[in-house]
Design a binder for these strands. Structure first.
Lengths: 198, 198
DNA sequence: TCGATTATTTTCGAAATCGAAAATTATAAG
DNA sequence: CTTATAATTTTCGATTTCGAAAATAATCGA
């Protein structure tokens, strides 16, 4: 459903009151006329796209803060106890998908155990849409990518990159290398599918 | 200053061509008339706020992807070494935002140190749009929510829930309790801003 | 309470958006 | 080339938004 400007009304008014701004003040900050702001807060008009952006920019918050939808968010909660995730293995990495049963998310979380210890130059790069965040739980990780020097991470380090860049994980330390991975996709793709396919 | 609909024009057309959609197809996906879409692509009209949202939703991308695809698809990689994140503190929790300089994401990552040891019944619930994923790095965490019994998590456990449900983190074990948190928002938004405000 | 000042809401006209239908352009088949 | 069909653009009128100015409401000091 399209986000309705009506939702913004109460949020804007609350923000304005909280900061002690008059409509006039908000008008100066945003470049939107006092009349329009009044009508907005009272649900007597809806805002232009550019005007909504002026509003958010003027106040200094993100647009989501105004629309604050909470919509399309399932009210479910799901939990995965240690070791209880959905496991699947590839040649180089073992995956344990966490909270896999959560509905309607366009992102996924997994705990990875990296087995590969050398970069096989014949293997194609891992490459998929989305952004990948990793946090090293244990061991030493080397991230090889197609467009830059390898990056070495140790326990407690984190990294965020575009997964469409070809990449490979290699374990470097003496012991096991474990990562926590968060993969975020745009649109409605299935995150687990994406992991499996690469 | 305000994001101009004109910016969206070329982006939409590129996306449409890439997927082999006709204006008619895009119209069906988005619920926006063919005429309006044509005018949009040719810069002969600007879009309503609600219409922009219909567009993004229909295509299946975030609004940021339309307004500033350069940001949404940065090829950048960013890294935060252990302890090198952007830190800010609240009464109950210390936050270290990881990879905070990554532009254009609709999610954020942080390492949390939970200080609160009891639930103050007078404090309002934490509540914000989005979905929250946590992984317990250390200690014992009790998640109190407004609509169900408290949930206890220990090291290695993970949990995913809707952040619009009122919630509070409490540390239960003897030592420090640390979490890795991933907050994902819909549409476009500043994640750090959301964390700060709550 | 009164009057003065400040803050908000309403009125009203100019300008803009939206979609249906008509007009134009592009593509294909014979 | 000609005709038929598909795809896109333009026209046009109903509806809506925006902001200046007028009207109303709220606040405050004497």
């Amino acid at each position: 459903m399209g986000v309705d400007t009506v939702d913004i009304a109460s949020r804007v008014k609350a923000l304005r009151k909280k900061n002690g701004w008059r409509l006039h003040d908000l008008s100066e900050k945003t470049g939107i006329s006092v009349a329009t702001l009044s009508k907005l807060e009272n649900g007597k008009t809806k805002l232009n796209f550019t005007t909504v952006n002026k509003l958010a920019q003027g106040i200094g918050v993100a647009v989501t803060n105004l629309t604050s939808p909470g919509l399309a968010h399932t009210k479910d909660t799901t939990m995965t106890l240690g070791g209880g995730g959905v496991v699947f293995e590839t040649r180089d990495v073992d995956y344990e998908v966490l909270c896999a049963d959560y509905k309607g998310g366009n992102q996924g979380y997994a705990k990875l155990s990296v087995k590969a210890r050398t970069l096989d130059p014949n293997l194609p790069w891992h490459r998929h849409p989305g952004k990948e965040f990793i946090y090293v739980l244990k061991g030493i990780l080397v991230l090889h990518t197609e467009d830059r020097e390898p990056i070495t991470l140790k326990r407690g380090d984190s990294l965020l990159f575009d997964s469409s860049i070809g990449h490979h994980y290699i374990s470097a330390g003496r012991g096991e290398t474990q990562l926590l991975l968060s993969l975020s996709l745009q649109g409605y793709s299935n995150v687990i599918e994406t992991l499996r396919e690469n």
